[in-house]
């Protein structure tokens, strides 16, 4: 089981939370909002590949074609 992806997601989350706080303190709420959106999208892109792999494995394991 390769859990480096979880570590990566947690790292991205922490980094963007901190940047978010900094941006909000600086009064740039719009950019903070965009940053959170971009973070979620980046993580989702990382996951999509994994999900297609999951579906392919399920098809292979249960021999559904």
């Amino acid at each position: 089981m390769d859990i480096s992806l979880i570590y990566r997601i947690a790292g991205i989350g922490l980094l963007i939370s901190i940047l978010n706080i900094v941006l909000k303190q600086a009064g740039r709420d719009e950019q903070a909002h965009m940053l959170t959106l971009a973070g979620v999208i980046v993580v989702l892109i990382a996951i999509i590949q994994l999900m297609s792999q999951l579906f392919a494995t399920v098809e292979q394991v249960f021999q559904v074609f």
Partner: peptide, 16 residues
Amino acid sequence: GLALVTSLAFVVLLLL
């Protein structure tokens, strides 16, 4: 939003 995505990633990894 990120909490949901993180749990999604974790469950996918577990299943894989």
